[in-house]
Write a protein that binds this DNA or RNA. Structure first.
Length: 219
DNA sequence: CAATAGATCATCT
DNA sequence: GATGATCTATTGC
């Protein structure tokens, strides 16, 4: 894929993010992440809700770090974790008033489309192109996303999510979120079933089981 | 494959 | 002073 192929793509409007967080997380799958000439297709996300979600950074209420989660939707939330990595989120929630509601979608993995050379330089330890952005820490490293991107507009700013009309649909599966202790059974992780760029084959299978169980419960 | 340790620091108690 | 929305290398079946 080349930059020209993005001609028909449109930046997701602020209204896209002003909806329930879990819904935005699902709908971000298949969308394009664009930053600094690099492009990737999102294949894995997680929803982190407001005060009611103990696993969310918003659970304790507003602090210096999570402030943007309580602000208007359509803004990036980037935080530093484990002394080494950054994680990229899109602030998304249905609340209109700051402080009344909070939420964000963690971008966990994406399929690299443009700028693979730059990504390889930044992710020298990656064994294959599929692993350049197959994890939240890997993705921000490949894209060069850091503190400077926190709080930036996803509509006007340098970092944007695009919809590419006509792109093939992904097979969406659901599972519990990864790497958390609290609310460990909440089904708020969404990913492209069987996609090679999802965090790991083990987690991919786990999600398959979760999807099968969810489907079974529906009948 | 699965389990584990180590790296490394901002944030909060 | 402990913890964490992670990743990598290494060890053990």
């Amino acid at each position: 894929m080349t930059q020209e192929d993005l001609a028909g793509a449109e930046v997701l409007p602020a209204s896209f993010y002003a909806r329930p967080t879990a819904l935005v997380a699902q709908d971000l799958l298949g969308k394009l992440l664009v930053f600094d000439g690099l492009v990737a297709r999102i294949v894995e996300t997680e929803a982190y809700l407001g005060r009611e979600d103990a696993a969310s950074h918003a659970a304790p209420g507003p602090t210096a770090r999570n402030a943007v989660m309580f602000g208007p939707p359509g803004v990036s939330y980037v935080y530093f974790i484990y002394g080494m990595y950054f994680c990229l989120n899109a602030v998304a929630h249905a609340g209109e008033h700051a402080g009344a509601e909070a939420g964000a979608v963690l971008i966990r993995a994406a399929e690299p489309l443009c700028g693979l050379g730059t990504m390889r330089e930044r992710r020298a330890s990656a064994r294959c192109w599929q692993d350049l952005a197959s994890g939240p820490g890997k993705l921000t490293r490949a894209f060069g996303i850091g503190r400077a991107e926190n709080g930036a507009s996803l509509v006007d700013g340098p970092l944007r999510f695009l919809d590419l009309p006509g792109a093939e649909a992904l097979d969406v599966a659901v599972s519990p979120r990864i790497g958390i202790r609290k609310c460990a059974d909440w089904p708020l992780r969404f990913f492209a079933l069987g996609h090679p760029c999802v965090t790991s084959s083990r987690l991919n299978r786990a999600g398959t089981l979760a999807l099968a169980r969810a489907a079974a419960m529906r009948t």
